[in-house]
Design a protein around this nucleic acid. Structure first.
Lengths: 351, 351
DNA sequence: CTGAAAGCGCTAACAT
DNA sequence: ATGTTAGCGCTTTCAG
């Protein structure tokens, strides 16, 4: 009928449930012979430990809740995969859910995680609003944010150095001779969109390049659809710039596809991109001369380390902000040309 | 200190725990005034329901376990997203894990799911071995397989009609005038690799096209890396075919990138692909004339429907095999030309 | 070395 | 309308 419990095993092996529990937990204090009988009984009945009962007893579930804006995004999933590799060996499983880029949904999912007693939470926030992270229950649950952070919410946070990455992109474009560089990004309420726009502005200024506001797009979500429509607006102008920096891979994908559709091949030869992110299909983005590759594995590792540390009760450096250096890719096949890396404030990085 | 329980709330509101439980469960039989007091107490203490305790009581966890060969694969994650959309409204959360394409890992993850009392399981099997799915515990847990099935394991299963898709691809290529069509796939122990190879062979025969075994590759996993190395072998021959059918998107991606690296642009003009899968970056796969787009959302829906049905105790049509018709894409921008769809055995499908 | 019993947080008879 | 209590499956003192 219902799954066998230690009670059933105990009866079958003619011992008490305490003894069954002992062999389950590899206690040394149980007689060889008894142990065998118990093991046999377990086998016979097809017994499986009930983790939810243990969870109730121990007040931990050995699960980490993860909230991502979408699941079908390679970047997010690569860091999730890395997290699983890191925390899995410690017995943790992942409860993964999507916020669908909605704060409301994020709120709901967070509540579910709390009620399910997850031991830790990692979230890639959907937006700039984060009051829901201030709830009392979260005082006891380690929470680390990834990729996007929220102003006023001081929690452990790991991200890639956007500023460094963007500066390198603009520098590379400039070094190649481009003076007019447009920008394609997303709504400023998205942390990375905000960071990257300002880094772009800063870099342009530093290099003495003029920013043409008409070609600086920062609206909407950072999706493929948005990428298409933004670049479309630009390409509809007669005097659009030859180069664009694009703030993430979805936008980049959309922009490339749109450009391929709208432009003749000679026009295409005159259009160059540099962008954030470098994922599995990056080699196909032919207009791209330079890209910033985020260290997904490393991000996952850092998140896990932080989580495991908090889980073990160590809060000494809370809240910690870890900033990872990305790798700069020069796509020579597409026309990118190597340039001197680094700048006054950052140190060298291999490509 | 520790999270407040109904006990704390009861004390604070000066009622019994039963009453607290009643307001928690929206029982009608509690006095308005009492209810208010309880609600206030909850609010004051920051009470959250403990789902683990409820799970123990109810013997269900409201969670569905999902095992995918990898998480950073858009196809898998799109179906997972669809599943979440379908079962979420019924209160289910997803415990998602990767088998890393390893049977051993799959076995381990399955055991974890059983011990955690997931209510249902969906798995995209890593390989052709599936003895571990025969364990007694699974008699009580609905399990549905997706995309790949395992011989001898009769469970609910939903897949895309590979045969139909492949036939259409070969037909399209043939209609466009190609007579020599190679095949790039994976190890036959992978269900889809097996299905698609035989469909290819069958279609070639049906159309009176000669199969050249030298250019029929079916080995290794269906990954980007494998795609690169397989097409490389082909392109190293002087007389490689002008057209190839490729069995999935990762292989396709690898093959395209490799071809782009190895071939001159005039050689590239002479190379044509048709393939299974059509994902977000598909428009960039320039060598592709035709593609089979799997209905990810529909797959997720079917899986969910089946799962929910079993979960509600309805096993009447078990084991059910649902086969979904894919959509055929003609990539005109890349040179694909529309052709008469359908064949003697299948009915028409819009493109 | 083994057993009895309490308790983790909650629900649901069964009482009152 | 509300309180008392047993019990979900397990671990863990405390006794023997």
């Amino acid at each position: 009928m219902s799954s066998p419990t230690i009670k059933d095993v105990a009866k079958s092996a003619n011992v008490s449930i305490a003894t069954v529990s002992r062999v389950l937990n590899h206690s040394e204090t149980v007689h060889k012979h008894t142990q065998e009988r118990v093991l046999e009984a377990m086998d016979l009945l097809g017994y499986n430990r009930n983790e939810v009962a243990r969870s109730l007893k121990f007040r931990h579930t050995k699960t980490i809740g993860i909230i991502a804006p979408e699941l079908s995004n390679i970047f997010f999933m690569e860091v999730v995969e890395a997290i699983e590799r890191c925390v899995g060996p410690f017995g943790y499983s992942l409860l993964i859910t999507s916020s669908n880029d909605s704060i409301e949904e994020e709120k709901r999912k967070l509540q579910i995680f709390i009620e399910r007693n997850v031991d830790g939470i990692v979230v890639m926030p959907a937006g700039a609003e984060g009051q829901h992270f201030l709830t009392k229950a979260l005082d006891k649950i380690p929470l680390v944010m990834v990729d996007r952070c929220i102003e006023g919410i001081n929690v452990d946070f790991v991200e890639t150095d956007s500023r460094y990455g963007v500066h390198q992109m603009i520098k590379a474009l400039s070094h190649e001779g481009y003076k007019r560089i447009g920008y394609i990004g997303g709504d400023l309420s998205i942390h990375t969109a905000h960071e990257r726009l300002f880094a772009y502005l800063e870099a342009m200024e530093e290099l003495g390049l003029k920013v043409e506001n008409r070609f600086v797009y920062h609206q909407g979500s950072m999706t493929q659809t948005s990428g298409r429509s933004l670049i479309r607006q630009a390409l509809l102008e007669v005097d659009y710039p030859e180069a664009f920096f694009i703030a993430n891979d979805s936008l980049h994908l959309g922009a490339t596809i749109q450009a391929l559709e709208m432009l003749s091949s000679s026009q295409l030869d005159q259009l160059v991109f540099a962008s954030f992110d470098y994922l599995s299909y990056a080699p196909l983005l032919k207009l791209c001369h330079y890209a910033v590759a985020q260290p997904c594995d490393k991000i996952g590792e850092e998140v896990s380390t932080l989580l495991l540390k908090r889980l073990s009760g160590n809060w000494e450096d809370y809240p910690k902000h870890v900033m990872l250096k990305p790798e700069i890719k020069v796509l020579r096949a597409n026309g990118g040309i190597p340039y001197p890396l680094g700048n006054s404030k950052s140190d060298m990085l291999s490509s």
